[in-house]
Computed example of a mutant assay.
Amino acid sequence: MQLKPAELASHLAARRLAPIYLVHGEEALVALEAAQAIRDAARAAGFAEREVLTVEPGFKWAELAASGQAISLFAEQKLIELRIPTGKPGTEGGDALQQYAAGAPAENVLLVQCPKLEKVQQQSKWFAALEGAGVAVACPLVGRAELPGWISERLARQQQRLAPDALDYLCARVEGNLLAAKQEIDKLALLHPPGELDLAALTEAVANVARYDVWGLGEALVAGDAARLARMLDGLRGEGEAPHLVLWALADEVRALLRVGLGRAQGGNLQQLYRENRVWGDKQRRYPAALDRLKASQLKAALAHAAEIDRIVKGVGQGEAWEELLKLCMRLMPAAQAMGRTSMRG
């Protein structure tokens, strides 16, 4: 039997535990939560004893059969966790798993944990045996397309939901980092009551926990707030933030400004350009003034400067990274436009 991670909770609540669970996939957070849900359900069902086996060099597969047959002095029911870090049990292990599945004892639950399994492994006899005797839960990566649904489902558990623009903003902020998404969602449960949250509530929640935030650099850059930028850079440096992350945030904003500006100059739809370049919330209101203030040539020169800073950060260029980051920001501030402001052009 196969289940998606989102289906596991209802399965565990609605029926007697299966004798075998196989959790596999490369989305570590989802796999960890699935395994923990199975542990919790087993404990609630009376499986008071837990034994952990890890397949590593020297592991003897006879231990699995022995664990399944051993009678505990302390509990009638036992949860056995078998961790296979490589996802490859080998010939001996495959045979041992098939034998266990063929006669899985009712007084035990076996939880097998593997990383991402390739197609050939999912077509193996041992995988089919475990799946046939129990439940397989695949935990693939949560990509950009799946992220809104994943976030919305998690928010629904705490009786919250995000307005469309707030959901887009959060997805852009945490894309590729599911742990960060979980932390933001947990934070919203603590700071806001049930119901719909708008973009202002979301950004306020973020600001409440972070004194300095690399994501705010782009907002200050677009606003042309030189003093705020300097303070933020100084604060991030004092907090030990990695300069390459600061550089990435700044360069990402400069690229967005360049793309939106060039698209606007060619008659493109501004709202569509904002969506394509992940420009959200109040920043949209400030973008037209920023684009009027900055020339395409300035933005291209700033990206070239960013490439130089990248070499410094990697130790192959000359200069001090934080000083150059400040110079990069200041060259895009209104004070640098002493000769007058012109519309975006190449």
Rank of each mutant, 00 (worst) to 15 (best):
A6E: 15
L8G: 01
A13F: 00
A14M: 02
L17C: 03
G25S: 07
E26I: 04
L29P: 07
A44D: 13
G46H: 04
L53S: 15
T54D: 04
Q69C: 08
S72K: 09
S72W: 13
L73R: 07
L82M: 08
P89K: 06
G93C: 01
D95K: 15
A101C: 13
A102K: 04
A104G: 12
E107N: 15
L110Y: 09
Q113G: 06
K116M: 15
L117C: 09
V120F: 09
A133C: 15
A136M: 12
V137I: 07
L141I: 07
L141P: 00
L141H: 02
E146F: 13
G149H: 09
R157W: 03
L162W: 08
Y169E: 09
D186N: 11
K187A: 06
K187M: 05
P194W: 10
G195D: 01
E196M: 03
V206F: 09
N208T: 13
V214S: 14
V214T: 14
G218N: 06
A226T: 06
A227E: 15
L233R: 14
G235P: 10
E239L: 06
H244F: 09
L245S: 12
L245K: 14
A256V: 01
R259D: 09
L262D: 14
G263L: 10
A265K: 11
Q272T: 12
Y287A: 01
K295P: 00
L299V: 00
K300D: 11
K300S: 15
C329S: 10
A336Q: 15
A338M: 07
T342L: 11
G346N: 12
G346P: 14
